[in-house]
Amino acid sequence: MLALFTRDLKLAFRSGGGFGLALAFFLIVVMFVPFGVGSDLTLLARIAPGILWIGALLACLLSLDRIFQLDHEDGTLDVLATSPLPLSGITAAKATAHWVTTGLPLTLAAIPLGYLLNLPEPAYIWLFASLAIGTPALSFIGAFGAAVTVGIKRGGLLLSLLVLPLYIPTLIFGAVSVTKSVDGLNPLPSLILLAGLTLFSVVLMPFASALALKANLN
């Protein structure tokens, strides 16, 4: 499993696809917001938590299909499925690698992007914490969507349609915790719920993904 994890990291760095693209996409989304709603700093400050969370979520969505698609296309997935690794372990390793190459950089990038949107001072720590805690859930839930759609040619749009509804609780708990910190309220309860959701996803989603992969390899 460690071998699979490090290989996925290596592939992500070498092909440049997933890694840099998600960050660039996040930057562009944030840049577009003032174009769309105007450059009024107080307005931007109010919508910044939501924009940053939605931006990170969409950027994460962008690279989901690569989790299994490439390995499916060149036959690696078939060989992996007959290897000693359990399918749930394979999906867990791949989802973790996806988080390291997508969720983690997005979390770090959110801080300077928050400054661009005039995010109020006390919210930065909560923005960072909520993304750091919430993005693993995005990767693990997303890996499930990728496992379901792996056999479908040009399944990217379908993948979004399947995964986005599953992202609703994560988005709500994540964005609410940042919004609360902006409003001077206690963001801790939503952050704890978010952590619970992440734990739930990390522990259980690999098994659902494994079931879906098994059905797809048939």
Binding site: F144, V148, P165, L166, I168, P169, I172, V176
Partner: peptide, 19 residues
């Protein structure tokens, strides 16, 4: 499988939306 997973997340969404 999607229906099973979706049910869990639909329920979670219901509570999240209230929240």
């Amino acid at each position: 499988i999607l229906c099973m997973v979706g049910s869990v997340f639909a329920l979670l969404s219901r509570y999240a939306v209230n929240f």
